[in-house]
Design a protein around this nucleic acid. Structure first.
Lengths: 347, 347
DNA sequence: TAGACCCAGTTATACGAATAACTCGCTCAT
DNA sequence: ATGAGCGAGTTATTCGTATAACTGGGTCTA
């Protein structure tokens, strides 16, 4: 059978034959930045032949010679396909493409076997590096094979501290959110957070820390009664907002540790026939695209800079120096909308 | 300089040397399904050496010999990173991996230049095929280079009709939604759709067609006053639901062409001090993960089968036979929640 | 006028794996 | 005793590209 190998486009040899030169000449003409090694005539003949035949360089042959592929591996648990963090892969890909690299992506969905196997395949493809991204900001165990290649942990941190990591600056975010409310004149500020103790999630712990820091800086006592911990769903947001707002001394503002919780809080406020921001100011966290801008009123919240984080992770991979084990924290900018104002005057 | 080429793992030659055999033997031992060509002793020595050295086959060398890579290209405008359709890439990747293939992904963000360049790069990598996915179901122009490789249009249709396409069955979806309301006993059913005339979007046109078909089948006159066309945002949902419900002869149920519109309708219903489904039944479309299950009451809606579509697209690529230009429509299953009941008895 | 040097190319080889074709030593049937 | 056949390997070649090292002629200089 002649057709056992699939049809594969023309090669450099074909181009060389068509242009009446040697294969080496073709290669040199196409690649040499140092322009004028060949006569203008030869160069033109080569370029013409390239176009005429529709020649495209075989990346595998090139990689085989050069050792590294123009690809970066991206392994995510489910981040890349999740509704709120899809942008993370967008940033990574943008940055990679700026250097002409493509992304080889896998969502493992948490499957460790798939993770190992696909990482293996990526290494077989001699990727220039691997981004290991996670859904939630946490400290995680990285697969051992990652140490054999330039790699970066994204939206999480390497528990062992060996790989460089890129993650949101939760503490500063929590501080910024609280500070926004303090600046508006609030002094009783509720906080509906994700549970911190068991989870130990940097997201929850950090935001809480930032909240406390801002209060302290403002010289305010922090009242534990104003802080609630839950699962992060809107039911919890609803329930805790309800509790806070119906207590003896309700807060005039609530910082919700995530936008879904804020959504729940909106519903509670609505059910209490109160209004946002007139009666209660609210700040969220996450800046979820489908939610935050569409709530009424628009939710003032903190943006998780997924695009920037993705970019930064790839940048670290492309960098010459190896930033062993550093954790890079990225700013979460405040996105101002309509859910915050000064507290109501006491009657 | 010795270190000009990056460190690259051990090769078959290294393994062969370590095991005291030839490179060919290593290759044959590792690949031959026809087991016992070599003595058990030799096979063991090879396998031991492989493990000891941490040998991993160089995919590029393999591809160079074999002609096709174990990769499939995935080009999306922004689907892959969009909050509602990220799952599309998940399905594609799952299916690909079942055959041991990885996905080489690019979001072009609509940039035609990036699209062409990255497609070019993919072809350089000898991908086994390319999935060309779009954000919205529409008829689109595909890049010419796609014709040189096995490819499938996903969540859209090739306007030229040359490439096989996979898309949701909008007509059937619109029919199912309307039918659900008819079956519950409604006969005045509003429809808030995305504008169809200018856009010509299959999503909008098809759902409308399905709506009309269901009414006709039920022997009902379709009342144009019950149908509104808008942009698909929740403001439109709000406005049109308001209009419909405050009209002289309001509908008892509304089919919203998308979940965001349904969200707006929920707000209108709430502002009118009516309740869902008691006073108005609502069916959405899209089954947006962040929205539909979290609305109160949960929104009965139609699922856009992104995972299944992604899977199917890759499957078509892997298939032997080339299904020239066929458009494959996928079912949108009804997801039953709490927003539909029978119409209120007239007082 | 020999040597140095440049110009415009070419030849040869390596990258790592797969595989067709071969070798070498034995056994066994005729 | 002859050669067919098999078992257990090896040798040689191929995929497409990049590049070091070479060639063969011309020009310029001392």
């Amino acid at each position: 059978m002649a057709g056992s190998r699939p049809k594969s486009g023309p090669t450099m040899h074909d181009v060389a034959a068509a242009a009446g030169v040697s294969q080496a000449t073709v290669s040199l003409v196409l690649n040499s930045a140092s322009g004028s090694r060949f006569s203008e005539d030869t160069r033109k003949r080569v370029r013409d032949a390239v176009i005429r035949l529709g020649y495209r360089t075989n990346a595998h042959a090139k990689v085989l010679r050069e050792g590294v592929a123009g690809m970066i591996g991206f392994i995510g648990d489910s981040v890349a396909t999740s509704p709120f963090a899809g942008a993370i892969i967008e940033g990574a890909q943008q940055r990679a493409w700026e250097d002409g690299l493509l992304l080889l992506t896998v969502n493992t969905g948490g499957d460790k076997e798939l993770e190992a196997a696909s990482l293996d395949a990526m290494l077989s493809y001699k990727v220039a590096g691997v981004v290991y991204a996670a859904m939630y900001h946490r400290r995680l165990e990285v697969p051992a094979a990652l140490e054999g290649v330039r790699s970066v942990v994204l939206n999480s941190q390497d528990r062992a501290g060996r790989l460089p990591s890129v993650a949101p600056d939760e503490v500063k975010g929590g501080y910024t959110a609280t500070r926004r409310l303090l600046d508006a004149g609030h002094s009783r500020i509720g906080f509906i957070n994700i549970e911190t103790l068991e989870s130990g999630l940097p997201a929850a712990v950090g935001r809480h820390e930032g909240y406390l820091a801002a209060l302290q800086e403002a010289g305010l006592e922090s009242d534990p009664d104003l802080v609630r911990f839950g699962g992060g769903g809107e039911e919890d947001g609803y329930r805790y907002a309800m509790e806070l707002l119906t207590s003896a001394t309700p807060p005039t503002a609530i910082f919700c540790g995530n936008d879904r919780g804020a959504w729940g809080a909106y519903q509670a406020v609505s059910d209490l026939r109160l209004s946002i921001p007139g009666d209660v100011s609210i700040v969220g966290f996450d800046n979820q695209a489908i939610l935050a801008p569409h709530l009424r009123p628009g939710l003032t919240t903190l943006d998780l800079p997924f695009v920037a984080m993705g970019r930064r992770a790839v940048e670290l991979i492309l960098q010459e120096a190896e930033p062993e084990g550093r954790v890079e924290l990225m700013d979460c900018p405040l996105v101002e909308r309509k859910s915050v104002t000064h507290p109501k005057e006491m009657p």
